[in-house]
């Protein structure tokens, strides 16, 4: 890619990433949440990879990393859900943290936690899909 593309992407990617975090953190207050924010975060990484390219070895290493992250994040979601069976009302997916006041950033009990982990999971999994497809393509051209 040309220098213009590289420089613009460099400037944009950070902002896109931050916006993704914003969408995830305000998931329980505004439209958006884990899935939408996760896709935005993955988008910022994909932008960088598209603009700068990546070595084949690097790609496979990144792919194993994202797979691990994805699995850890979704396991965390499951553990939070299962924690509801141990504390509080002892029900699967129970909201066992205090609900707080409507409209504040720290409120709605465990829902922001779900949003955060789902966001990580979605970002990692979309990145995994992207990297896997790129790796497949590289293997064909070799």
């Amino acid at each position: 890619m040309t220098l213009i593309v590289k420089k613009t992407t460099q400037l944009l990617a950070g902002i896109v990433f931050l916006y993704g975090i914003y969408v995830i953190l305000h998931g329980h207050l505004t439209p958006g949440g884990g899935f939408a924010g996760g896709v935005i975060i993955a988008g910022s990484f994909i932008l960088l990879i598209l603009a700068f390219g990546s070595e084949f070895m690097n790609l496979t290493r990144e792919e194993t990393g994202t797979t691990l992250t994805e699995n850890l994040a979704i396991l965390a979601v499951l553990l939070i859900a299962l924690a509801g069976m141990i504390v509080g009302a002892r029900i699967f997916f129970d909201n066992w943290l205090p609900a707080g006041k409507v409209g504040e950033l720290v409120s709605a009990g465990v829902i922001p936690l779900y949003n955060i982990f789902v966001g990580i999971e979605v970002a990692a999994s979309i990145l995994t899909i992207f990297l896997a497809l790129v790796i497949f393509k590289e293997e064909i051209t070799k």
Binding site: I126, I129, A132, L133, F136, K137, E139, I140
Partner: peptide, 17 residues
């Protein structure tokens, strides 16, 4: 739908190979 499409695409790449 995203998961199914991604799965289909990866299968297509394998088929092409």
């Amino acid at each position: 739908g995203l998961a199914t499409t991604a799965m289909l695409m990866s299968v297509i790449i394998r088929i092409y190979r």
